[in-house]
């Protein structure tokens, strides 16, 4: 177990608890989708994992060490656990794409050759490595490109855990697909990912487990098919239901717990062709 939250309670002011006796075990290499209504504490959860909110009660453990204990090495922790905030393009300040990415690894012991190589590799991973784009300033990029650059700024540190707060906000269809491809790529390399999102279709396609939050608590922590199967539950908790599940339930198609679109079409076609042959 790489990351654990034990009985964590976080509040901003005395009254309201943003995270309430929160318990979570995160195993290495898994992709967790975090969903729930606005105000359920999702962003605060990510920020707490990242070291920004010392819990009033409970512990946040990374490789069995409490990250909020005085002696903990926060500097090297921040290299291993990277967070990409919502609308991350708000943090750009350089006029050069490479310099913007380098900001994160400036304080490491890499030689300048290694540094350059790392930046180039990262640009390749996010698809911004063509000569034309590299010449541009971060501010001249399109919305989708800016988002990928922000992702690159986090990936350059080769983190073990990647935290993403609504990475698809404001992106159009192609921008969203590009980010999904990059995340799937990173996942195969073994990075643990925790992603907050409102989009049940995307979560169903790429997450291994879904955490549903409400009022600072975990309501469910299960695989996508179990979380999303009950329409009423989804509606009550404001998390939406993936189209494949809604359709499968309506059309009485058995998806065998694989709710990806590919499987849905295959099973649907099979069922219809079978019917035709009767």
């Amino acid at each position: 177990m790489e990351l654990e939250l034990r009985n964590v309670t976080v509040s901003y002011s005395s009254a309201e608890k943003i995270l309430d006796n929160f318990n979570l075990e995160v195993n290495k290499g898994l992709f967790f989708g975090i969903t729930g209504k606005s105000g359920s504490g999702k962003t605060t959860l990510l920020e707490t994992i990242c070291g920004f909110h010392k819990p009033e009660m409970g512990q946040v453990l990374f490789n069995n060490q409490n990250i909020y204990e005085g002696k903990f090495d926060t500097v090297s922790f921040r290299k291993k656990v990277q967070m990409v905030f919502q609308f991350p393009e708000n943090q750009f300040f350089e006029t050069d794409i490479r310099k913007e990415i380098e900001f994160g690894i400036k304080n490491t012991t890499l030689s300048s050759e290694d540094l350059n190589r790392r930046v180039t590799e990262t640009l390749q991973t996010v698809g911004l490595n063509d000569n034309e784009t590299e010449e541009l300033s971060p501010f001249a990029l399109s919305g989708g490109q800016k988002r990928r650059l922000a992702l690159a700024c986090a990936l350059v540190l080769q983190p073990e855990i990647l935290l993403l707060d609504e990475p698809f906000s404001g992106l159009d269809n192609s921008g969203q697909n590009q980010i999904i491809k990059i995340l799937q790529n990173i996942k195969t390399k073994g990075t643990t990912i925790l992603m907050v999102s409102h989009d049940p279709n995307v979560l169903c396609e790429i997450a291994d487990r879904i955490i549903v939050m409400n009022d600072g608590r975990i309501i469910k922590n299960e695989i996508p098919p179990i979380v999303y199967s009950d329409k009423q539950f989804c509606s009550q908790l404001g998390i939406g239901q993936p189209d494949t599940i809604t359709a499968a339930n309506l059309l009485d198609v058995n998806l065998n717990n694989d709710f990806t679109y590919e499987n849905f079409i295959t099973k649907l076609a099979e069922k219809l062709l079978l019917k035709n042959n009767d």
Binding site: V75, Q91, F103
Partner: peptide
Amino acid sequence: IKKAQMARGANFNRGSFLDRIRSVIP
């Protein structure tokens, strides 16, 4: 913004006086 920059390795409390001034740019 401070949180976002700290998350990617910025350190606002370290170094010489000149370093600290420069660290405010991001």
